[in-house]
Write a protein that binds this DNA or RNA. Structure first.
Lengths: 217, 217
DNA sequence: ATTTAAATTTAGACAAATCTAAAAATTTGT
DNA sequence: ACAAATTTTTAGATTTGTCTAAATTTAAAT
């Protein structure tokens, strides 16, 4: 598998190509910042390799083999992210682009040893679950902060947006995974929230609230 | 820099292109298992980028920029090898091919942090020196076992051949870096050596002796 | 000093991955 | 339902890195 092929498979998975639903070439092109015509070419190639089902003018969905492949890449990506944070003191906004490269390293032994070194972590630094060696993983029961009842509270367990800008914003306001967050009230006008975290009150916009996950149980 | 370009630069360095000497396209092609015509194409490209001097029909030699680039790649390769052995329990015959991939990861911070994690090692698992961040490194004073006086002794500090076959042979006979080796006698007929290592005597062929380095001081 | 042999380069072609522009199919709006 | 808008595909071109086969240059041998 080439690096380009792996990136297509991974993107299609993230767009929901594991479910039965068909992903359009346009959606893939937009996500990958490439042109729909390039996606069409690659779709044919990956269909030939039995990694996805391609229906002309309709879109693609991953085959079982494609899903397995995607999970293997995502597993590597997330394990490397944990490694960078836990062993090399990277911050959570620095890991993505390096992990994008490391996820393509071909060595089963390498990633299994990294897994072991990290003591088999279940979640990456952004709270996303890490698929096991055999490809299964439990998505945590979680809810966007913006969808929580008011008032209520929960533990921050993940972020939806993983851009450096957003993560740095969270650092600045001392919001991190594992922190208890209480929702005090919602401003009806702009859906901004008054929250309580680490003993302090903080006003956050709806845009922030729709990108923060809280544990539900 | 593409991966292919990096591999050319690294190979030319290892063939001696840092010295004033010119390396022939044939030599490069043979080392890289490619065709001389491909090397010619790449030589032009790298010369355009000021990474090497290319003289038609004569060969190439690295520029200062080319040497700096080569050292950076070699530094990464050797640091990753140390990482694999020290942190992930790889054996010294398993590290090369994985390091060949890892050496192309682009992140200054990553390799500096790996360096720090390993406590700034000076030599890789095969005894080869690791260039520092600013590109200088001290080649150890060493001698091939086959060129030592008889009798004499020294500490094993490196291997010339780093193939898995040779390294496994050494493991099998309990020869490792840091071990004291005494040369007892040389067989004039085939230049094989009787050596003493770890309290035991061992007969080794000239082919082995010409691939083992011993410290000189 | 020629001829022969070896090394090197050029020319033209190919596969991978991408692009642009034009054509075809699908979806949308009325 | 049919024209317009959108999406998707096709056709042809480009770049990178490679190859083969032919031409050229350099080195070796007599």
């Amino acid at each position: 598998m080439t690096r380009a092929e792996e990136n297509y498979i991974k993107t299609i998975f993230h767009l929901g190509g594991n479910q039965a639903q068909l992903i359009s070439t346009n959606a893939i092109a937009e996500q990958m910042e490439t042109k729909p015509s390039s996606v069409t070419d690659m779709a044919k190639k990956l269909a030939d390799k039995n990694l996805l089902n391609y229906i002309r003018y309709k879109g693609v969905s991953l085959t079982d083999l494609g899903i397995k492949t995607a999970l293997s890449i995502i597993r590597k990506h997330r394990l490397w992210e944990v490694f960078l944070v836990k062993k090399l003191d990277f911050t959570w906004d620095e890991v993505h682009e390096v992990a994008e490269q490391l996820e393509h390293i071909k060595s089963e032994k390498l990633i299994d040893k990294i897994d072991e070194l990290l003591d088999f972590p279940k979640y990456d630094p952004h709270g996303d679950p890490i698929p096991s060696k055999n490809g299964d993983f439990q998505e945590r029961d979680k809810q966007l902060l913006s969808e929580m009842p008011i008032p209520s509270s929960g533990v921050c367990v993940g972020v939806k947006d993983t851009s450096a800008a957003f993560l740095k914003f969270l650092d600045k306001h001392h919001i991190a995974l594992g922190h208890e967050i209480s929702i005090v009230e919602k401003e009806a006008f702009d859906d901004s929230l008054k929250i309580r975290i680490g003993g302090k009150e903080l006003q956050i916009s709806n845009q922030i609230a729709t990108n923060l996950y809280v544990k539900v149980e």
